[in-house]
Simulated scan of single mutants.
Amino acid sequence: MQAENLGANSLPQRLITVLAFLAGYVDTFGFVGLFGLFTSHVTTNFVLIGANIVGQGQGVLLKLSAFPAFIAGVAVAKCAVEFSVRRGVSAERAIYVLQAVCLSFMMFAGLAALPVHSADSAAVIVAGLFGAIAMGIQNGHSQLVLAGKPLTTTMTQNITLGVIDAIEAMMGRGAETKAAARARFADTLLPVCGFAVGAIVAAIAWVQASFWALLFPVTLLAILALRASTEACAVGE
């Protein structure tokens, strides 16, 4: 699915930054609230599983279950986009609503698990599953709707490209090449900063409000869904 067909090229840079903030928030929230679970960087969970096996940390089942849940989230995003395109409705709106629903279930399951003592409790695992599904949906969103834009969930590639563009901006041949590199660098720098801020805010929010703090990203996604719906109506969907 080409991004042009879904109107991705008209998306403002601030939206990419907001989504990166959300990813940093949820990923950090899962880590501090669910025994070191990474809801977005699911391959990192394999490292933690290895550590768990030799007695470092806990929650092997939780981290193992996050991988198929993440895959399911990507599949859900793909199906939602295909269904939306066939019906001629906003794919973005569907993505945001689905992600908000999953994060709501993560919040309710987490609240049911309180006080959290065991990584193997059913409520904790359910919370982790829905968190991984939510971030799988956002990862799918990055590839399906935001193709060609900086990633909103994993910052390693953005940082790598940012370093390359920074060097190109200083050492590139020709003014146009340097200007293009500077523009790309700015595009990648903002989501990296957004992700970092989201991570810090999530850690503070967890301490202050526990799983209730997930109301913040749920509300943020609801606003984005409303925005996508309003824009779709404006273009005569």
Rank of each mutant, 00 (worst) to 15 (best):
Q2A: 12
G7S: 10
S10T: 14
L11C: 10
P12H: 14
I16Y: 14
L19G: 03
L22G: 00
L22H: 03
L22F: 06
A23E: 03
F29E: 07
G30H: 01
L34P: 10
F35E: 00
F38E: 08
F38S: 13
T39E: 02
T39N: 09
H41G: 08
T44V: 12
T44L: 05
L48T: 00
L48G: 03
A51N: 07
N52P: 02
Q56G: 11
Q56L: 12
Q58K: 14
G59E: 02
L61G: 10
L61T: 10
L62Q: 10
K63L: 13
S65E: 12
A69F: 13
F70R: 05
V74I: 09
V76I: 13
V76S: 10
A77V: 05
E82A: 11
S84W: 11
R86L: 13
R87A: 08
G88E: 05
G88H: 07
I95D: 07
L98P: 02
L98F: 09
L103N: 10
M106W: 06
A109L: 06
A109Q: 00
L111I: 12
A113P: 00
A119P: 08
D120I: 09
A122S: 08
I125F: 04
A127V: 02
G128R: 11
L129Y: 03
F130T: 08
I133Y: 02
M135Q: 06
G136C: 06
I137N: 04
H141R: 13
H141G: 02
H141M: 12
H141K: 13
Q143K: 12
L144K: 08
V145Y: 03
G148V: 04
K149Q: 07
T152C: 11
T153R: 00
M155P: 01
N158V: 12
I159P: 03
G162D: 01
A166L: 15
A169E: 06
M171Y: 15
A180M: 14
F185V: 00
L190V: 15
V192W: 08
A196F: 13
V197Q: 08
I200S: 07
V201Q: 01
A202N: 05
V207Y: 07
A213C: 07
L214G: 12
F216L: 13
P217D: 06
V218F: 09
V218A: 11
L220K: 09
L220N: 07
L224N: 04
A225V: 05
L226C: 13
L226R: 15
R227K: 15
A228I: 10
A232V: 11
A234Y: 02
E237R: 15
